[in-house]
Nucleic acid binder design. Structure first.
Lengths: 111, 111
DNA sequence: TTTTATTATCGTAATATTGCGATGTATTAA
DNA sequence: TTAATACATCGCAATATTACGATAATAAAA
């Protein structure tokens, strides 16, 4: 089958999974980290930086853009990509919420 | 090809991607959240809770265990699963590190 | 020992992801 | 207009993931 049964889960669970999927490839992690460091970024830089073919990187950028993590603006011939600050905050909170759940009840007796 | 070129990326990038992959399915998010709430948990509960077939859940549990997020101890006929507190902290820090990188330089001018 | 209950593993079908060559598109330079 | 540059999209091959029926493994109960 290979198809996720999204209808079984809450909206929040599906969203977290979808966002996690965006980070679930080292190339996309690398792209995000590169954008975090550099103030701005041109697609062409990434081809040299990552060592993957240009179409492959373009595809990863598309996925990050689809989730809203990054945004791109056409800058003459090239494209400038950067982190979307609002969305970044949202995603940060999504994960923080998950991680905070445990801290609250960390005094349990575990198996 | 379908095979990730892990050799192109840093150890940290690969690890973050691998951990993110564990969260990249709503069933696994649901399992983790269930374990966060319940003090302890038996596999059978999850079959009723999630609505997926038993082998499917067993497979998701295996993946979470492989990453180290959860741990299970045999409890008679059934198995008790729970969050691994040490690993949870590690993973929390891994993500926190990523999210914190942006806050520092959030005064940039973006595209 | 036989049955029952609970979980794991195997095998397989359906679908998704990854990577890249070839090609298309759009903008600037000549 | 033509050429060059920078990305995006298409199409395909290889591999990975998801789901589950069938079946094995294990331990308690009868």
């Amino acid at each position: 089958m290979g198809v996720t049964k999204t209808e079984l889960f809450t909206k929040q669970q599906n969203e977290l999974a979808q966002v996690a999927k965006a980070f679930a490839h080292p190339a996309r992690v690398a792209i995000v980290q590169y954008l975090l460091k550099a103030n701005t970024c041109i697609n062409g830089n990434l081809v040299q930086e990552l060592g993957l073919a240009q179409p492959t990187i373009s595809q990863h950028l598309k996925e990050l853009k689809a989730i809203g993590i990054i945004q791109g603006t056409i800058e003459g011939v090239s494209v400038s990509y950067c982190i979307n600050p609002v969305r970044w905050e949202e995603i940060k909170n999504l994960f923080n919420h998950l991680f905070t759940q445990y801290a609250i009840a960390s005094d349990r007796d575990c198996c």
